[in-house]
Design a binder for these strands. Structure first.
Lengths: 339, 339
DNA sequence: CTGAAAGCGCTTACAG
DNA sequence: CTGAAAGCGCTTACAG
């Protein structure tokens, strides 16, 4: 059996001081009073070094009612956006003594364990990227229990938590409108495989449909393929579409990656982009700049979450609970050469 | 000010039972004894529902000396491999009532906060992917304090924690040997930008150098470029290399993504792969199968971490600490058409 | 079958 | 300036 983990009591005994003094030395915190003198301090630190003492988060968290941990929740797999947010969050958190944990949400797997992290006070706050499986009531309950939350969502109303509005629907709609305005009528759509994972139909597919309907263009089921989450499926689907007797002249893809695969497929068949096939992606990932021609895409213009991160810590630092606010971070149609 | 978070004491009062009974009902655990009768149980659950009671992890963790949380630590950004491991870990964890948190390590940022998660008993165990910033002494100390650890590393000795051997050096060496055996002498290398972040020079670059040296081929500094972590830089670098009066005839890349960009660059310049430029990547990501020609790569043959995940939970379930073991999961040279 | 009580490891207001 | 003591919210061996 392993030796018991040393506690502050062990340190106190070894250093010949009280546990209060140990805590003061280790936390550097002390109400308004003077810190313990250097000599005491040193005895404590020596005992810590000798025993390999490590603080126990459970004891501290129980007493202080905070964990000094924040979470980033996002639907798996990760993306350049979630990676970037994790990075910004970690840098800001480190400055304030917070740690960051990432909570990827696996589609289809149980969300119970992740909800436990949010509900059972493992963390003080969190940023939730779009399409996390939490409803407004759940979020409001978490906020009421003291969790600081910044939630990316286009529909929820703030309610003790902040909501970041991206207006994804409007930006996606601008993409389909652009294709229609350019004269396209046979427009293919590469969608997510599990578009019904959420109560509402995926906003991207819905924008596509509404755009077509608004111009009286009938939707052709063969042109809608659930391949946006698999690069190989996307490539194959676009190749097949282009080989049809009546190929599409434009393509809207729910992911940039699938759009890029579509461009490859077109190139490999000798179809030029955008003249033979206009292509627009959704997500605006950095990779879209790499392909030739550069990918027209819908998404946030800059890989920058500093305002949202700042807001999370503002909420965490607030002496009394802040009311929920709306932040605007609208998606845009970013026109490049592909469509 | 928000209403105080209800505790089990509040529930007990409301239900007219003791806090012991509340705990028994909520945990479903009860030594060997019979569970509370349905009538009691119902009163408790009703009080829980009425108050919105949520367990406080700090109290439970302090008493039970476990958190029911495991971590996955990996160098950021995430990859198809870390995403897949997160998924497998989450599925296995959910079956056992564990939650999973991901700990991306930002290169260059302070690692103090992440170490705090491991050291201060936020979690019961963790899987560490290669190149995490923890040395053997640190890992041994964590293991001695009761953390269950499964660590991907080719050099550390097991010491209360398990080590997964990938033998990355040998597999990378096989790649450079293959290129040399095919007659190549001008072999470019796309390396990581921060190859010196760790005490040892990056294993990939070292394998490249050792391979050249073993065959008396002088290393040409111009052919080694630190662009493997940026798609656009990789594309530009390979384009520039191919435009030289004495272009390389082969390319080894520290990442598959950069290798793929190299293939694009070659195609765009009319250089055929592999005849004009043989290309081998490292990592074996699924995307390598998408490009034409499919990418020869070095890495794990299958996207499967079930043995490592099983081992973590075996360790967590063990009644007494298990000695450290070695697991073999060797990388291979996976020959496809590109090189 | 149920409850009173101890105790997990911390922090901090307070007494000396 | 330092320490004794209370208490954060749980769980569980034990008494009744």
């Amino acid at each position: 059996m392993p030796p018991r983990r040393p506690t502050q009591r062990d340190i106190a005994e070894r250093a010949g001081v009280s546990t209060a003094t140990v805590s003061y030395v280790l936390s550097g915190r002390r109400g308004g009073a003077k810190p313990p003198p250097p000599e005491t301090r040193e005895r404590v630190l020596r005992a810590v070094a000798e025993t390999g003492y490590q603080l126990d988060q459970a004891g501290r968290s129980l007493r202080r009612q905070r964990t000094d941990v924040v979470a980033l929740m996002y639907p798996a797999p990760s993306s350049p956006w979630s990676d970037r947010l994790a990075e910004e969050l970690q840098v800001a958190a480190a400055e304030r003594g917070f740690a960051v944990v990432a909570l990827p949400v696996i589609t289809g797997a149980s969300t119970a364990a992740i909800l436990r992290i949010l509900r059972q006070r493992y963390i003080d706050g969190a940023v939730l990227l779009p399409d996390c499986p939490l409803d407004g009531a759940e979020l409001a309950a978490l906020a009421a229990q003291g969790r600081s939350l910044v939630v990316f969502d286009d529909h929820l109303e703030p309610d003790g938590f902040d909501v970041v509005r991206q207006h994804r629907g409007g930006a996606c709609r601008a993409a389909i409108e652009r294709l229609i305005a350019a004269g396209h009528r046979r427009i293919a759509f590469l969608g997510h495989a599990d578009e019904h994972r959420h109560p509402v139909v995926d906003v991207k597919l819905r924008s596509y449909r509404e755009g077509l309907a608004a111009h009286g263009i009938p939707e052709h089921p063969d042109l809608v393929r659930p391949v946006a989450d698999s690069r190989s499926d996307a490539y194959a689907a676009v190749r097949d579409l282009l080989r049809r007797p009546d190929p599409p002249t434009a393509l809207l893809s729910a992911t940039d990656r699938a759009a890029i695969d579509g461009i490859w497929a077109a190139r490999d068949l000798g179809v030029t982009v955008p003249d033979g096939l206009a292509v627009i992606g959704i997500g605006n990932i950095p990779e879209g700049l790499m392909i030739s021609p550069p990918l027209t895409s819908v998404g946030a213009a800059a890989l920058d979450f500093s305002r949202e991160v700042a807001r999370l810590f503002e909420r965490l630092d607030a002496p009394s609970p802040l009311p929920g606010a709306e932040l605007a971070a609208p998606w845009e149609l970013i026109v490049r050469a592909s469509g």
